[in-house]
Design a protein around this nucleic acid. Structure first.
Length: 465
RNA sequence: GGGCCCGUGGGGUAGCUUGGUAUCCUUCCAGCUUGGGGUGCUGGUAACUCGAGUUCAAAUCUCGACGGGCCCA
């Protein structure tokens, strides 16, 4: 399995070897979450929940089906989505008068109800989120976790009494992404998408992109400023202190299992996937080394170590399968477990355990009496080192260019006058996509790479998935 | 949006041109053996995507559907 040479084969192969997903379900783009894959996704979701609960969002669950009549209320939104929608046209043998669609996202499910929930300025801000499946009829090539038709989706929706308050929400979302990226060890860039690539119905869109080993970027999620585009269509209004009725300002924030796909792509190697400790379903695996004469002692010691790790709050697993140790080593490396503890007669004699790191492969004997503190240190160390490595790789593949002759794989940063025609020209000449203006970029002064006019706006450009 | 290729046990494959008995590796199950980086042996389970057509006979030829993948825009 050679990640660098042949990513398109490597990626599905490591997913299969790690048993994260079963793609044999007979519908394109609808894969099965296996127990191991789902455990990881639940850990990823857990951090999202924690962040949104801590920032005063409430979790909700809206129905999967949306009536056609509600879906059609915001013109731009329908135009953007109609080609992607699955329809329910029949109930039993009866053809439905009002067709129902499987949510491709939940604006049109939530907003008619928001109109009922929001009455006065005291009801604002309204901040909710849900973690649900959404359906989009992808016609392109599907790929586990990266492009699927049934999407494991996170979405937050907020309503505010002013544009400024909605902007503050977007700022908070930016801070949340920064914290989440540390848990997932995923470097990213935020770019304000150009007009022609914003979300259907949005005033503006911020894309969250991560760089894959192929030099293409993968969009992990997005933040949208809706202003009053939807609230006017759905009549979500509030009464202010002066008795005036006004439409609310809205934002959304969405991410999906692409987070998992990106972790696999960024951190996996030729041995298989590699999980950052925070989202590893198993953080430490214990492999007994059994030999004639010491079997019972080794088994007992393994049990003891296992319980100690569990009590210390680590996700530990004791591999007592009847297989050769070498076989187990390969297995757990393919599954991406960050730490492996080997316990054999030699370790017992030395009052120690052998610890091997998945990321570096380094093998150390550590004394039994300070095993726990050492293991905890290693877990933290692996987490930060994986993040650093990811960031370094993204930095090294981000290039500032002043001419389109200098294009190379990765993320290119260049000057842009802001004109749509010049933006499209960049895309035509390079075969890449304009990701947009990096959010919070340093002061920039240069020339538009197409027309040569002075500009203070840099943009990021990359091949995308 | 346009073009091209592919579909054989759980995974990977041979066979297809020239129609007739489906190959090998791996996984899985049972037993023995082994045990600090993929033990070895014996036995077993298990497949031609679906539908229509041509034919005495279809994995093989034709058409369609479904599924998988590639290239260009």
């Amino acid at each position: 399995m050679r990640k660098r040479e042949d990513f398109t084969e490597w990626y599905p192969e490591v997913i299969e070897k790690a048993n994260l997903s079963d793609k044999r379900y007979p519908i394109k783009g609808m894969n099965i979450w296996t127990p191991y894959g789902w455990k990881t996704m639940k850990l990823i979701d857990g951090f999202i929940r924690r962040e949104f609960d801590a920032t005063d969002h409430d979790e909700v669950y809206f129905p999967l089906l949306i009536p056609e009549t509600e879906f059609k209320k915001e013109a731009d939104h329908i135009k953007g989505f109609e080609e992607w929608v699955y329809w329910v046209t029949h109930a039993g043998t009866t053809e439905l008068d009002v067709r129902l669609l499987l949510r491709p996202t939940s604006e049109t499910a939530m907003y008619p109800v928001f109109a009922l929930w929001v009455r006065s300025h005291a009801d604002l801000p309204l901040k909710v989120y849900q973690i649900v499946n959404v359906f989009r009829y992808e016609t392109k090539q599907t790929r586990a976790f990266m492009r699927v038709r049934e999407i494991h989706f996170f979405e937050s929706h907020t309503c505010h009494d002013s544009f400024e308050d909605a902007e503050r929400q977007i700022q908070q979302n930016v801070e949340i992404i920064e914290r989440l990226s540390k848990e997932y060890c995923l470097p990213y860039i935020l770019c304000k998408r150009p007009e022609w690539d914003k979300f259907a119905g949005a005033a503006y869109t911020i894309g969250i992109d991560s760089l894959m080993p192929t030099g293409r970027t993968l969009q992990l999620g997005s933040i949208h400023q809706y202003k009053t585009n939807f609230s006017e269509a759905y009549n979500i209004t509030y009464e202010d202190e002066n008795g005036q009725h006004k439409p609310v300002h809205q934002t959304t924030f969405g991410m999906a299992e692409r987070l998992l796909g990106a972790v696999i792509a960024v951190h996996g190697d030729d041995k298989g996937v590699m999980f950052p400790p925070q989202i590893a379903p198993i953080q430490v695996v214990i492999v007994p080394i059994l030999a004639k004469g010491s079997k019972t002692a080794v088994k007992n010691e393994c049990q003891e170590v296992y319980h100690e790790l569990k009590e210390a709050g680590l996700r530990a697993h004791l591999d007592d399968r009847d297989l050769r140790p070498g076989n187990k080593f390969y297995d757990w490396e393919a599954k991406g477990v960050p730490l492996r503890i080997e316990i054999g007669n030699q370790d017992i004699q030395a009052k120690a355990v052998t610890v091997v790191r998945r990321d570096t492969g380094t093998k150390d004997m550590i004394q039994r009496n300070h095993m726990m503190s050492k293991i905890k240190d290693l877990v933290n160390q692996i987490q930060t080192e994986m993040m650093d490595l990811g960031e370094k790789e993204m930095r090294e593949n981000t290039h500032l260019v002043t001419s389109l002759d200098e294009t190379k794989p990765g993320i290119l940063m260049m000057g842009w006058c802001g004109e749509g025609s010049c933006g499209h020209e960049i895309e035509d000449q390079t075969g890449m996509s304009v990701l947009g203006e990096p959010v919070g970029h340093e002061e920039y002064s240069g020339k538009c790479i197409i027309c040569g006019n002075d500009t203070k706006t840099p943009i990021c450009v990359a091949k995308t998935y």
